[in-house]
Each structure stands twice: as C-alpha cells, then as structure tokens.
Computed example of a mutant assay.
Amino acid sequence: MVDFEVPVIDISAYVDGAGAAARVQVARQIDEAARQVGFMQIRGHGIPGQVLDGFAGALDDFFALDQPTKETYRTSVEFNRGYSPPKSESLSLSLGVTSATRMNDYFEAFNIGTTTADYPELELPAAAGYAENVWPAELPEFRRRVLAYYAEAARVASTLTAIFADALDLPAGYFDRFTDHSLNVLRMNNYALPPGSVDLDGELKGMGEHTDYGIVTVLWADQVPGLQVLGADGRWHDVQPADDALLVNLGDLMARWTNERWLSTLHRVMPPIVDGTIERRRSAAFFHDGNFDAVIETLPSCVGAGSKYPPITVSEHVQAKLAGSRGLQPNTNAQREAARAMSARS
C-alpha cells in the first residue's frame, strides 16, 4: 500500500518577509505537495488566536439557533449566501456523478462572500457571485467576528497565490490580474444533527466526494475525524489538522491552469458515528476562486504535449458546479473528476 501523508509546511517566510533563500525553500515544498497530494497543512500563517477563537464562537452561536430561525436565512443556487440546511445538497453531483441523486449530505452551512459593494468602482453582477451577504439579526456580534476571520483568510489565500507564482516559475504577482476582484466565499459547516433526526444508513455522507471549484481553499477545522482525502493509491485516507495548522487544498481552476501538474484532489467527509450518534464536527472553508470574468487556460509552461482542458471563465465553471451540488443538475464539464470519483475504492 502506498504511504499517504499530508505535508506540514511553515509559510512564515512569506508572512514575515524573510530572505529569498527561505522563500525558495517554502515554494519548493508547496510545489512538491501540490504535485504529490494536492493537500497540505500550513503553519506560520499569522492569524491571531483571538480572531480564531472569536470566529469559532460566532459559528457556534449561529448553529445553536433553532431550525425555523436558521431557515429564514436560507441560501439559493443563484446567490450562494446564507444558510443551507442538512440534506439539501449533494456535492457528488458537482462532479456529474449521476448516481448521487439522493440528498444525503447531512452537514448544514452558512455562507458569506465577496459583494458588489466591495468593489464600487467596478460593475460586478450580483448573479455572477457578488451577491450581498445576509446577517442573522439575532446575533449582533456575528458579523464583526466572522468578517475579522474572513479578512485574515483572504490574506492567507493571497499569500498562497504569491507562493504559487514562485513555485511555478512565474513572474512575481502573476495571479494578481486574475484575482483583483476575486469570487471569495467563506462556508461555515456544522456536522451535527439532533438525536433521532436522521437515519444512519450506509449511504449517509457528512459531505459527498467532490473537488473544490476554484484556485485554493483555506480550511479551519476541528481535530475531529471525518475528513477523507483520495490518495494516488485510489483509497480514502483520514486527515485531521495538526496543532495550529490550517488545511489547504487546490481547486479545479489551479489544476486546469497547471494542466494537472498540480492536483485538485477528491475529498469527502464521513460521519464519525459513536454509539449510534454523530459526533459534532465544525469546519470553515475559505474558497479563493478568482475573478468571475477571468479566463482560465493552461499556463504556457505547463502545456507540454497538449492541454487537457479547454479555456473556461471562472463564472462558467463555478456556476456549473453549483448547479450540480444544489440544483441537482449533473455537471457535464467534469468528466475527468467524475471518473476518479467512480473508480475510488472504499
């Protein structure tokens, strides 16, 4: 069996402004992790502990609200803002895996993201991913604490794209023109249901197998079992965050850019069941997806014998994915990812 490990990488050389030699070493480690696994754990990210604690408290406060109250903030396929109740999504359909028609993803979530007001000098369409956020009126501190973390996660994502440029031997700031009004979404997830509210059958998933949609994902998560990553051996491997680390994985758009030199790795969340009940697990994924109108095509240095993907805009790609996971419209543009999902061994 092939050994599987998610490498832990300290990126403080880029955060603290260390010398060039230290940054070269970090970029080399990032390139290796992106080639071999598609997932990595990062330390030295610089997010203050009080910001993380405040954010975790805000997440807890929202999901502790009663179900009718949470439902008043329900999201939609078009705008991707607000609340998603349990079993309302099927992430596998974002890959076009048509056998996954049952809504078995039991997580609940709350989404915020980039809005038109963030870029008043640009005419950005709300329907393309820049919709206004909704905020629970019952929790007056929720907005402040969530936005404090959102700003830090955005900084980390921007730092990572700077490292990516170095790792891919591109000019400094290469990705800036693709991300200067990026579609960013922070999705706060809660994997817990009241006793007796769900049938714990064999098909139930915390979150179905999927690849992330954009450039890079920065994930804060509890040290609780559940997250599984598909390895090169075709098997699912358990992953938990190390102390003081954030999990980072690459999305489909980075795989397209690099012609699969770097991996957009399939992952899922399985329900950790203890004595017949689901143990609670929390996570928050910051998706850094790029400008809605940016055209993603294979980087010249990665074309090789030919590109595996045609050009596509960020908006076209993301909307097709969302139509699958929430609208139950199988994604016909994800044949390569769907084949990997279907061939994975338990």
Rank of each mutant, 00 (worst) to 15 (best):
G226R: 05
P7T: 09
A242S: 02
Y309R: 10
D169H: 11
Y191M: 03
N331V: 11
F79D: 04
A320F: 01
Q228M: 00
R340Y: 07
C302H: 06
T298C: 08
I30A: 09
A323M: 10
G96V: 00
A58W: 04
L204K: 10
G57R: 12
P140T: 07
N249H: 04
T217A: 10
S76T: 15
L160M: 15
N104V: 11
D118C: 02
K321I: 00
E32Q: 13
C302A: 13
D201A: 09
F287D: 07
L250I: 08
I42P: 05
F110S: 08
R102E: 14
T179W: 06
H210V: 10
D31Y: 06
Y149E: 02
D118I: 04
H288Q: 05
L183V: 08
A34G: 08
L253S: 05
I273G: 15
E123W: 09
D275A: 14
L204P: 06
A148E: 09
L322N: 14
T101D: 14
A56F: 02
I215G: 05
A172S: 11
G202T: 02
S90F: 06
S182Y: 05
H210A: 04
L219F: 13
D31K: 03
S301C: 14
A20Y: 12
L168Y: 00
G304S: 12
M103V: 10
R281V: 13
L170G: 10
V156R: 08
L160N: 10
Q67T: 14
Y119A: 13
Q50V: 12
F178V: 04
S158P: 11
R102K: 15
I273L: 15
R340W: 08
D252S: 04
A245Q: 02
Q335N: 15
A242I: 10
F63I: 09
Q29T: 01
A58I: 07
F286T: 06
T258V: 07
E279H: 12
S264E: 01
Y213H: 11
E152D: 15
A323K: 03
D238V: 05
V318L: 12
A109K: 08
Y150L: 11
T179S: 11
G206R: 07
S84F: 05
M103T: 12
P125L: 11
R23V: 01
P272Y: 05
H237E: 03
D244Q: 05
V8W: 06
Q29R: 03
L328T: 03
S343P: 01
G276I: 14
G234Y: 05
N333V: 07
R23A: 07
L227N: 02
S158R: 15
E108F: 07
V37K: 00
L168Q: 00
Y309Q: 03
W236Q: 00
T277M: 12
A255Y: 08
D66R: 13
G231L: 04
F175D: 05
R43C: 14
G327M: 02
Y150A: 07
T332D: 14
T313Q: 03
R177Y: 02
D105W: 05
Y14C: 09
G231P: 06
A157R: 09
T332E: 15
R336P: 07
E108V: 11
I215T: 12
F4R: 05
L299K: 03
F55D: 02
N259R: 04
E279P: 08
A117L: 02
S315D: 07
R102M: 10
G276N: 14
S264F: 05
Y73I: 09
I42E: 08
I112S: 02
V239T: 01
H288A: 01
E138A: 14
D233Y: 06
